[in-house]
Design a protein around this nucleic acid. Structure first.
Lengths: 99, 99
DNA sequence: TGAATATATGAACAATTATTCATATAAGGG
DNA sequence: CCCTTATATGAATAATTGTTCATATATTCA
């Protein structure tokens, strides 16, 4: 398991960067429970619809979340288990460090 | 497994941010093989000693790497398995996305 | 002690980025 | 068809960050 190409290196870097923002982490956190549409996320987190939408775009273009359109609503959810595992171990790591 | 406090949220955010830079990822990558001192890393990666030292400081203050001083050299290594797992799944995720 | 080696640090600059505000697009319901 | 709801987007601003350059600190050895 090694970073063997420039493409992988820059892809990885962009990928992890997406986890490095509190608003995006909060979005991922609420999506761990169940898929939600933009307005629901905005309401839950008390962050403007625009800010959420901008961040969802980032999350989506790095494949951390995926979408499903139902009627006029767009439901967002965590795209796969890699994301959940990375969150899990990050939380574990920080929880230990914080002790 | 949930982000239950502000402290955890900001800690996590800072933590993941550290993975989000190509130079730091390259450092972590070479440290996956074996502990190295600053100059060795600088030589392997062909990056100035100053840049490496600055980045090692970031890696260290977020507990991604730990140090051991031997003589006048300071050996850096990956601090624990959480870091390795997060790298592993990140690489897997990106490798899949890149196909 | 003095020179050489190893590492850290501080200031400065360029580049990136998160949010806000205003507005655009798009789809349903009446 | 209009009106409402849901979402996306673009520009602008403020804040953060990575590297460079110069220099400081610390340790070993002759």
């Amino acid at each position: 398991m090694q970073i063997h190409s420039k493409e992988l290196l820059y892809g990885l870097s962009e990928f992890y960067k997406i986890f490095g923002d509190p608003t995006r982490l909060r979005i991922l956190d609420v999506l761990l429970n169940k898929p939600l549409c933009v307005n629901e996320i905005s309401d839950y987190l008390n962050v403007t619809q625009s800010a959420i939408s901008h961040q969802l775009k980032n999350l989506r273009s790095s494949n951390l979340v995926k979408t499903e359109k139902i009627g006029q609503k767009v439901y967002y959810s965590i795209s796969d288990d890699h994301i959940k595992i990375i969150l899990k171990y990050g939380i574990e790591h920080i929880s230990e460090v914080m002790l």
